[in-house]
Write a protein that binds this DNA or RNA. Structure first.
Length: 363
DNA sequence: AATACGGGGCA
DNA sequence: TGCCCAGTATT
């Protein structure tokens, strides 16, 4: 069974840059990027990252803003902040050498049982199991597990199966783990598994009982929630260049460390007037707003968001000349390239670049 | 045990 | 629109 899967992997594995030189640092970075993110999305990010931060020491010494700029668009930004903190931990506790014992790896911020097992099995051949979306599905079908994988007893059982599957000798557990994940990604897919092409079909309990489309059971369905949000564009002219009012988002909240246009982060901002009042309170001066410039629609996790973009103005002319209160700053248009932003923040930036001149005066 | 995380791809 | 993606940390 293992031999067949490994032979299939040898023939069908996709090229991935972290596979050609699987140092612990390479595998670690790739695994963090791959959390909740597909391989194709990760590839360009990974290449650019390794060009900029080729070693743990480079990562530890980097500016957080630069790291966030490299991560921009991948989402789940806590991942990159944890990566940074973990690199510093490796410098302090392990002299800059990536630790190779399970407990030390598990102690790194942002690393759980899956990632620790993946890094050590793939980079060092450690006999450690992995369980994630793909292997959860593959092993559930393998043993025709009726319980949904989210059930804690199912999770425990699947970790045990993943452990028992590992090769006793010869082939590396890392290769086996990757083969199982690759099988899940290419053959044993969530819908329409291609059992005819499966190298281990003969051993699969779900296929034997024709249950492969019923297993794994449905994970409880999520309720989607509609949200309305507002962003306010406040600009001023300085030395022939437009500047925009922006702020870095505070520690601990969503998008921590990213820069954003004025956008209320509290839930319950239902109207643009409320958004303007929020900004007025932030700045200590009255704010009025213009008509809607456009609306961006996007979806993240369980939210369907309509983001209304309006122009706004500080109604006291003097306040435009003063430095705004912390954390607000005037940022030159040409400097926005350097600042890390969310995807929607970057879309607003693109909009401002495309419509540099007009942004008609407020009604 | 449930939820936040705030991006993207695909049917 | 709904679901999934090489999950982890927090509450």
């Amino acid at each position: 069974m293992r031999r067949k899967l490994l032979a299939w992997f040898d023939q069908n594995a996709r090229e991935m840059p972290w596979r050609s030189d699987p140092q612990p640092y390479h595998v670690w970075v790739s695994e963090i990027m791959l959390q909740q993110t597909q391989v194709a999305t990760v590839l360009p990010y990974y290449r650019r990252w390794m060009k900029s931060f080729p070693t743990v020491a480079d990562l530890a010494a980097a500016d957080e803003a630069e790291l966030l700029r490299h991560w921009e668009g991948l989402g789940y930004y806590r991942r990159v902040r944890s990566l940074h903190a973990a690199a510093k931990q490796i410098m302090e506790r392990h002299g800059g050498e990536f630790p190779l014992d399970f407990e030390s790896v598990l102690a790194l911020p942002g690393v759980g049982r899956y990632t620790a097992g993946a890094v050590l099995s793939i980079s060092a051949g450690a006999k450690l199991p992995v369980l994630e979306g793909n292997t959860q599905r593959v092993y559930s079908r393998w043993i025709a597990l009726r319980r949904p994988p989210s059930d804690p007893s199912a999770t425990r059982l699947l970790w045990d199966v993943a452990q028992a599957m590992l090769p006793h000798r010869g082939a590396s557990s890392g290769t086996f783990n990757q083969a199982a994940m690759e099988l899940g990604a290419l053959v044993c897919t969530p819908t329409g598994p291609d059992c005819d092409s499966c190298p281990v079909r003969a051993h699969c309990q779900a296929a034997k009982q024709e249950l492969q489309t019923e297993i794994p059971g449905k994970i409880k369905r999520l309720r989607y929630e509609d949200r309305t949000e507002f962003a306010l564009i406040v600009d001023r002219k300085r030395r022939r260049e437009t500047e925009y009012l922006m702020r870095p988002l505070p520690e601990g909240g969503r998008w921590a460390g990213l820069w954003d246009f004025p956008r209320p982060t509290e839930v319950g901002t239902e109207t643009v007037d409320q958004a303007a009042s929020w900004l007025a309170e932030q700045l200590g001066v009255p704010v009025d707003h213009g008509p809607r410039l456009r609306t961006l629609r996007h979806a993240v996790t369980r939210y369907r968001i309509s983001l209304h973009i309006h122009r706004a103005r500080l109604s006291e002319a003097t306040s435009m000349a003063d430095p705004p209160p912390t954390p607000w700053q005037w940022v030159r248009l040409s400097h926005l390239d350097q600042l890390p932003m969310s995807t929607t923040g970057r879309q607003i930036h693109a909009y401002l670049q495309d419509n540099r001149q007009p942004l008609l005066p407020l009604g």
